[in-house]
Design a protein around this nucleic acid. Sequence first.
DNA 1: TTGAAAGCGCTACCAC
DNA 2: GTGGTAGCGCTTTCAA
Lengths: 335, 335
Amino acid sequence: MQSKPSHKTIRDIAELAGVSLMTVSRVINNSPLVRESTREKVMAIIEEQKFKVNITARSLVSQKTYTIGVFFSTIEHKVSDSFTMQCLREIYNTLAPGYNMVVKDFSQGLYEYNPSRTDGIIFISMQESDDEFISLIQQENPKIVVINRRTSIPNIINITIDEEAGAKAAVELLIRKGYKNIGLINGQPNIQANIDRANGYYQALQEARLPVNAARIYNGSFNFEGGYLMMTRLLQNTPDVDAVFCANDEIAVGALKALEERGLKGKIAIVGFNDSEIGRYTTPPLTTVHKPVDEMARQGCKALFDLINGKEHSELRHVLPTELVIRKSATKKID
Amino acid sequence: MQSKPSHKTIRDIAELAGVSLMTVSRVINNSPLVRESTREKVMAIIEEQKFKVNITARSLVSQKTYTIGVFFSTIEHKVSDSFTMQCLREIYNTLAPGYNMVVKDFSQGLYEYNPSRTDGIIFISMQESDDEFISLIQQENPKIVVINRRTSIPNIINITIDEEAGAKAAVELLIRKGYKNIGLINGQPNIQANIDRANGYYQALQEARLPVNAARIYNGSFNFEGGYLMMTRLLQNTPDVDAVFCANDEIAVGALKALEERGLKGKIAIVGFNDSEIGRYTTPPLTTVHKPVDEMARQGCKALFDLINGKEHSELRHVLPTELVIRKSATKKID
DNA sequence: TTGAAAGCGCTACCAC
DNA sequence: GTGGTAGCGCTTTCAA
C-alpha cells in the first residue's frame, strides 16, 4: 500500500489537463507542435499545480546534466580569496541558461570524480602537477577548459594571462624610475604564476644589464603573512635594496607593513601584481599589474559552452595582456 | 545504424564478467550479498573498463541528487570576498561523501529554481527580504537551513551569530578606554548585520549614559570604498569624534586610509568587525570582533545533512557568540 | 496537432 | 548468493 509521491510528474499534469503526457512534454519544451488553446490549458494546470520538470529524468534521456564543474587546484589558501571569487562570479554570470555550477577542488585527485555529473569542466589551474589529473579527466570527458595557467596538454582550450610580460613591465617601471637594487618577493615556488613572474623579473634586469642577485629573492606565500615575513627577512639580510617587486598584492600589503614598522615606508618602492581592490587603500596606494581575471574567466566559460554545444573553437590557446596600474608606491627614486 | 555509446554501463560490465547486472549493482554498492570471488572478478572488469556508475540514473531511482545548494543572497558585492570564501570552504569540507555543492545567488528570485536539482539547500542570508524567497522554497523542499541571519520563518534551522552582542562589546571597549564621542560607520542599511551591529552600538552608548548623536552615524557600503568615503564625510562634518566603530573590517581599512590622509591616524580609535585576515596587517593593527564564520558554516552544513538523512534536529535556532580581538587601533585615549 | 511505445542506466523487490 | 522484472520521469521516434 504505497501512497502517491508528493511531487507532480508530467503524467499527473496530463491527466488533469485531459491530454497525453507527450503534449505536456511539448508544452514544457516550447514545441511549436501544440495548438495554442491546448498549450494554454496545459500551462494553467502546470501553474496551478506548481509543476517543475524533473531535471534528473530529463538528464537521463538527454545525456546532459545541465551542470558544469568549476575545479580549483585547491580551494585552500594557495591563492587569494579575491581572485577565487572573481573567477566564480564571472563564471556564474556567464553560465548558459538552465545551467548550474558545481565548485570543487581537485587537490584530492580523481577519487571522487565522476564524468556523469557534469557536461564540462573549467579548471582554474595553479601548478604544473595539475596536468596529470587534468589529462586523466580529458580522456573520459573532452569537454574541458584550462584557465589561469599554461598547460602542455595537447588539444585543450587554455586561456591564460601573460604573467611574465606583466612582471617584466612592472620591474621595467622600477628601473625607469631610477631603482637599481630591486628585490623580489615571491609566493610558493611550485605555483606557475610564481615561476612566470620571476622570469619577468629576471628578464627586465637582464635587458637593463642589472645584476640578478639571488640574495634579494625570497619565496614565501601568496598572502599578507608571506609578504610580511619575507620583507622582514629581506630588510635584515640585504638592506641595500631600494625597491621590491611583490608577486601579488597581498604580499605587497604584508611588505608595506614590514616597511612601516621600520620607518622605511616611502623609502623603498613597492610594486604588486593582480590589481586587487586592497591596493587602492594601502598607504601609499599600490602600483600594481592589472590581471584581467574577469576576461579570462568569461572567455573560459564561453569556450566551454561552445565545446558543450559542439561549436568548433579554432583558437585553442589564448593569452591575455596585463596592464600597468601606476600609483604612489613606486614614484621616482630620491637619493 | 546506431553505434554503441562510448560510456560503459553496468550491463556492459555484467556481460564482460559473465554475471547479471544485479550482481554488478551489488558490487558497486558494497552489498555483502556477493561471494568474494565474484566481487573480485567484477571489480577487475570495472577497473579494466574504467567503469563509473551513472549518477543521473542512480538519482532517478533513488530520488536523491547527491547535490546540495549553497545559495547566497547575492554573489555580487554586498559582502566581503573573505566572508564568502570562508563559508564556501567550510561547507565544502563538511560535505557528506559523494555530495557535490552547487553555488548560486538568489538575487534573481525563484525563476531558475528547481527542487529536483538538490537534496537540500544552505541559504547564506543577508537581508530580511530574502525570507519571501526562502519560504516559497521551503514549501516545495523542507530540507533547508538558513545561516548568517536571523529569520522569522517558523520551523526552520537557523544558525546565526550574536552580531548585536559583538558590536556592543566593541563599543563598550571603546568606552572603557575613555572615548566619549564614538561614531559609527555602517554598510548598506538593508543588510541585517548592519541593523544588528547598529543596535549593539546604541545599546552600549545608552547603558553608559552617553548620548546617541545621529550626526556621527554614517551608512555606506561594506567595503574599502564605503569606509573611506564615510570616514572622509564624518571628519568633515563631526570633527569632535574621537573613536569610530566600523561595521566590518573592510570599512575599517577604508576609514584608516581617510585618517592617514589627514594625519589623524593614531588620534582617532578604530574598531572593526569580522576578524578578517587584513586586520592583522593594517597600521595600526585592527581591534575587531571575531565572527565565527567557520563554525557557523560547519554547523549549518551538518544540520542540513542531518535533515537530508532524516535525523531529527531538536535545536532549530542556534546563536553563536563572538569574541573581541584587541589590537592597537583602539588603545587608551590620550588627550 | 496529438498520442503510444520504447528506453535512458540504475535500484527495489521478489523469486530461485 | 544470484538473477529477472518493473519502473524512476522524462524525451525520442514513429504512427495516426
